[in-house]
Amino acid sequence: MKSKRRFKSASGQMRQIELLAEKDSWLNRIHPLCKFLVTMLYIVLVVSVHRYDLNGLLGMCVYPIVLFMLGEISVTEGLYRLRIVLPLVCFIGIFNPFFDREVIFYIEGFSFTGRIAVTSGVISMFTLMLKGILTVLAAYLLVATTTIDKICSALRMLHVPKILVTVVLLIYRYASLLSSEVRKMSQAYSLRAPGHKGVNPKVWGSFAGLLLIRSIDRAQIVYESMLLRGFQGEFNDMKNQKINKKDYLFFGGWCAILVAIRILM
């Protein structure tokens, strides 16, 4: 039941993000290429911040905060989505205090210990965590305000090879097929195995094999359906959106702000 709920919620979350991306907010209407480029620039700038420069990184928080407001996206929902990657980010940074023990400053005024030494390892741990959170948030903001088709059309505008873009799109399409097959199969399983927690390990093999065959079969039908409607390996941009003044302003404005923060802070 637990696994069934998990898969159901995975496909449900994908749909929720799709619904967000379909919204008609000011940020959603910005040209996908501009949003994509700003996101890439932001990620590069965040990653380039020195590992002890916590201040510089705090300045970078401006971007997601403003975008959450412009895109009318729930901050709590965005932070909730981080829960999947957060353990990984923490795991990477958690060993820094053990290896990097150089004391940078002391925090005074603690009654029992007197003062606490803050080592460079602690600073770099927080920096690493913040970098992870900010980059994932930036990516989330991009997908929450831009549909996958638009992101892929932006990639094509950047001359990313057609084959790569098509693979990205098809993986996205087939991921939902896969999750819907898992849902159906686990529903069928749980109806005939009441009281079982998850799928019994004895049937994992046949479950996974059948899932693969069924998913391939469905993916094949979807592909055939695409072929019959003239699909030749490229998804066409739905609305042929043109870059206008507002988009240039968004792109130019954010580039200037982000570079300024990076240099000045």
């Binding site: 379909e22 549909t147 088709d149 979807v222 359906s225 695409m226 066409n236 739905m238």
Partner: peptide, 17 residues
């Protein structure tokens, strides 16, 4: 047969291609 996000996008798929 319906693989795009919205009905509009699905119906528009063939003419665009």
């Amino acid at each position: 047969q319906l693989f795009m996000s919205t009905v509009y996008e699905d119906v528009a798929f063939a003419p665009q291609n």
